[in-house]
Amino acid sequence: MDLTGPQLCYNYTSNVIGPGELKTFKCPASIEGRFVRITKHTVASTALRLCEVIVEVNADTCTILDLALNKSATQSTTYDDGKDHAGDAWRSVDGNLDPNMPVGQSCSHTDQVGHQWWQVDLVRYYHITQVSIQNRDVVPHRLGNVSVEVSETNNFDIHSEFYDAKLCHYYEASDVPASTLLILPCSDNIVGRYIRISKFVPILYDVLSFCEVIVEGGDPSCIQGTTGITATTTVTENTTDEQTDTTDSPEITSTTISLPSTCPCSCRGSIEKYYNRSIESLLDELREELMVSKKETASYTRTLVSVDDGRTSSRNIGYVGIVLLVAVGLSIVVPDVVSLAMYMKGK
């Protein structure tokens, strides 16, 4: 496409955009280009001041640039100073990137030492490609040493850690520059519904606080290759000339489960051995695993202990034992017999 001149994306004619407001302008679908310019037309000599410009390209089901916007968010604890500066979790997904918490009232803030976390529910599963976090204009160290995890379920242990967490990114620096939008790309093929940002806070007054979380991703089907699991089944029903019982289940003659070449599942390694095999072979293997060996039962062990041991060494040990018992008995009885005989002779 030959571009002979600039193409107008949007002409915003209102006088002002509110403090801390994120304004979105939609361009015509036919516009293509490399450079984006924002121009201010005014008679007065006023400056053009911006804090962040986000350009969305090819926004479709595979490239969704703010999955977390206005979604349900929670956190481990919530700070409240009683002056309308409450650090509720939802304030970090309200679309307001204002880094000034007292003024913009748009930052989340926990209120306790220990394992601190913030979490958003995306409602459905997405392929997560990137998570961006807007830092505050003060105390920037509160966003240091954070982990971004993705989970398919909201199940966690007694330490409030996800059971099935997949690490998107670990930011190990001690802090983030003030008012910076920290961009954290995820590793490949991460699919999930819940996004959690967490850190361990070892000292008092070092909490988890930030002003906006932007989650980018798309539909799981956009991952290169097939992400689903397919099964092919051949079913044959038994039919005869006589009337058949309609309650009988069909006879499954062949079933094979196939694992795709590309799969984002974290459990792939543990279940891969069950794919590309028939159900019949899996059932046979299960029967063998459930079968109890006769030699492992208590009754067999008792019988084994009670049977005769025919080995020569065993018989010899038995004979020696008998001789020793007889010798001990004679050593006790013979002296008494001799004494009794001498007594009777003296009379």
Rank of each mutant, 00 (worst) to 15 (best):
K83Y: 12
D164N: 14
S198A: 13
H169P: 00
I197C: 02
Q7P: 00
L340H: 10
E285I: 05
Y170F: 08
I128L: 02
P264H: 05
I203T: 15
R34P: 01
V120M: 05
P99W: 07
Y205V: 06
D309S: 11
S147C: 05
G192W: 08
S293D: 15
A298R: 11
G318R: 13
L67D: 00
P220A: 06
P185G: 01
P177M: 07
S92E: 07
D164T: 13
A73V: 03
I183R: 15
G5F: 08
I31V: 14
D245M: 06
A47Q: 14
V326Y: 10
T4R: 09
P102H: 04
Y275V: 04
V120W: 03
S72H: 15
V146Q: 01
C267H: 14
V138G: 05
A178T: 10
I271G: 01
C211L: 08
D121L: 10
I252Q: 02
R287T: 09
Y275I: 04
T253V: 12
H109Y: 09
W90S: 14
D206P: 00
S331C: 12
E32Y: 11
E212L: 04
P250S: 03
S314E: 09
N316H: 12
S313Y: 13
V337H: 05
S299G: 04
E212N: 05
H85I: 01
T24Y: 03
T78R: 09
S76E: 00
V201H: 00
W117T: 02
K83I: 05
V191L: 02
A73M: 06
A44T: 14
G18A: 09
H115T: 01
W90T: 09
E288D: 11
E216L: 12
T234L: 10
S278C: 07
C211K: 02
D245V: 09
I197Q: 01
V305M: 10
T247Y: 03
G318Y: 06
A68G: 09
A178D: 05
I190Y: 01
E242I: 05
D137T: 13
L304E: 15
R302I: 03
I197G: 01
R196P: 01
S278W: 04
N154P: 06
D164W: 09
L48D: 02
L8Y: 00
T226A: 11
I257Y: 08
T227G: 10
H169A: 03
T256R: 08
H159W: 04
Q130V: 06
A231L: 12
E152F: 01
D80C: 07
I183Y: 06
V201Y: 00
V328G: 13
F162P: 03
E52N: 07
P260E: 02
D88N: 14
Q243I: 13
I223H: 03
L3Y: 10
E288G: 07
P19R: 11
T74V: 14
I133G: 00
T239H: 13
A178L: 09
E161S: 06
A173W: 02
N70D: 07
T4S: 07
V16K: 12
T129W: 09
Y171P: 01
G329H: 07
S108P: 01
C211N: 03
S293R: 15
D309N: 15
Y79Q: 08
V207Y: 12
L282P: 01
D164Q: 09
E296N: 13
N100A: 10
I54Q: 04
C267D: 15
V334C: 09
